[in-house]
Simulated scan of single mutants.
Amino acid sequence: MRKLADLRNHILANVPALKKNPDKLLTFIEDGNIEFWQGTNLSHNYTLPVRLIVTDYAGDVDEIIIPILSWLMVREPGSDPQNTISFEAELLNNNSYDISITVNITERVIVKTTEAGLDVEHVLPEPPLEMNSDAQWQIIADLHGLTEPVDGDD
């Protein structure tokens, strides 16, 4: 369940109030499921309703939600926007809340049999490579067996 740790680390790194007080972020998995296939294949998928509880939070809720959404964009790219995230909040006083956020995530586990035993790999989608908008491009065209650089300015 590496995605839970990855999500927690992402939130702590991107929410300044929680970075200062990480004990205010509690994380749980409630009613998780494991999808597996009969036979000799031990690969499986975890379906994890992750409960994030932020206690005594005095900031704007968007400071928590936006990092979660940015994490989902990378780590759960096919998630259903209507059913992936929900929340509840309790107003403690005029300045702070207890916030409970549920994020539905999946984690794929590939298990391969090797001579040494079992090789277990948890698959986490990697962030996409970002295009450098300032990059200089050069196209090389092969014209009748001759390779010549073609400038992009022509």
Score class of each variant (00 low, 15 high):
96 S>R: 11
53 I>Y: 01
75 R>K: 06
13 A>H: 13
47 T>W: 01
125 P>F: 02
1 M>W: 07
23 D>P: 04
62 D>W: 06
126 E>Q: 11
10 H>G: 08
95 N>S: 03
71 W>R: 11
112 K>S: 14
2 R>K: 09
140 I>H: 03
97 Y>W: 02
63 E>G: 01
4 L>N: 11
56 D>A: 06
45 N>R: 09
57 Y>F: 09
2 R>T: 11
91 L>W: 04
88 E>W: 14
61 V>T: 00
70 S>M: 10
118 L>V: 06
14 N>G: 03
133 S>G: 04
153 D>N: 07
73 M>N: 14
126 E>V: 02
66 I>R: 12
70 S>V: 01
40 T>I: 07
140 I>N: 08
104 N>C: 00
128 P>N: 13
12 L>G: 09
75 R>W: 02
109 V>N: 05
70 S>R: 12
122 H>P: 07
108 R>P: 05
126 E>M: 13
115 E>Q: 13
73 M>W: 11
33 N>L: 14
119 D>A: 12
3 K>V: 14
137 W>C: 00
105 I>E: 10
109 V>M: 06
60 D>S: 08
94 N>D: 07
51 R>T: 11
117 G>R: 07
101 I>S: 05
53 I>N: 03
20 K>I: 00
1 M>G: 15
53 I>M: 11
137 W>Y: 04
28 F>C: 04
94 N>S: 15
72 L>I: 04
34 I>K: 03
81 P>R: 12
57 Y>C: 02
30 E>F: 10
138 Q>F: 00
96 S>L: 03
61 V>E: 00
25 L>C: 12
29 I>T: 11
151 D>E: 06
6 D>R: 08
130 E>T: 12
42 L>H: 09
39 G>E: 04
78 G>K: 15
71 W>C: 00
50 V>K: 13
31 D>Q: 12
13 A>K: 14
47 T>D: 11
15 V>D: 15
23 D>K: 11
78 G>Y: 15
29 I>C: 09
63 E>M: 12
72 L>C: 10
112 K>Y: 06
71 W>P: 12
116 A>C: 01
98 D>W: 03
139 I>K: 05
70 S>P: 04
87 F>E: 00
33 N>Q: 13
144 H>T: 14
66 I>Y: 14
57 Y>L: 01
77 P>C: 15
150 V>N: 00
61 V>S: 02
98 D>T: 12
21 N>C: 01
132 N>F: 01
77 P>N: 08
130 E>C: 03
11 I>K: 01
150 V>I: 14
108 R>S: 15
19 K>P: 05
133 S>Q: 05
90 E>N: 02
49 P>L: 12
55 T>G: 00
120 V>Y: 03
63 E>F: 01
86 S>P: 02
120 V>M: 00
74 V>Y: 08
104 N>D: 15
47 T>N: 13
20 K>Y: 01
132 N>H: 09
107 E>T: 08
128 P>R: 06
54 V>P: 04
117 G>W: 07
40 T>F: 08
6 D>F: 08
